[in-house]
Design a protein around this nucleic acid. Structure first.
Lengths: 106, 106
DNA sequence: ATAATAATTAGGTATCTATCTAATTATACA
DNA sequence: TGTATAATTAGATAGATACCTAATTATTAT
């Protein structure tokens, strides 16, 4: 439910970048780590924070650990932001003229 | 554009609550402050962080300073979250209870 | 069992942050 | 001009955070 942990986890740019890399699918800790100019233990710390906030999933496969994006928490954050804005507020649409494709407005 | 400052500002629960109070319209620093169990200088600090992140507007009217929600930055955050998810997973976040359209078979 | 590889945990430190009290600035008004 | 009110700025501090190196755990292979 839009936890404080999730917001705190997102406050760090490295962690947001990690999430961005996971957008396309799972990656191992090592593959993720080597994309940053930071030691592996530091990266491991970031993984732990993301996991504690439930923003990522993880599973071991042999020697490797695969991390993946947990979209449900991100959706909760979006719901929070939407509630703040009031209505659809997404993009330029701004209600006006009505019915901008996409359907499914609750 | 989804600045680091905005994410850091949102990492604090007091500041998120302030934004929630501003959802309905502008409020003065004093009126906002008295809703929290915290000194006015501490609240002033939070206002400054929100303002620096462009999450709120402010204007002086006599002795008072009115703060208001700046929805455009919140919209940027929503766009960032949506990009992370890929599809426009809005419905799922809102309906809370449904399992429709989850995708992500894993 | 030993060695090699992948990843985390432990311990330390510099910096950042949220809070407080005290002092200051800005405005209004008698 | 004073004095009261609204709010911020200044300065201090406890706790959190993001790094690092060194040590440890888990797994695979020889």
């Amino acid at each position: 439910m839009s936890s404080n942990k999730a917001f705190k986890a997102l406050a760090d740019p490295t962690r947001r970048e990690i999430l961005g890399l996971l957008r396309k699918g799972e990656m191992t800790a090592g593959d993720l780590a080597e994309r940053f100019a930071m030691t592996k233990p530091s990266m491991s710390h970031h993984f732990a924070v993301l996991k504690d906030a439930d923003l990522v999933t993880s599973r071991r496969d042999g020697q490797q650990i695969w991390y993946g994006l947990n979209t449900t928490v991100v959706q909760d954050l979006m719901a929070w932001a939407m509630d703040l804005i009031g209505d659809n507020g997404l993009g330029a649409a701004k209600k006006r003229g009505g019915k901008e494709r996409g359907g499914k407005e609750q």
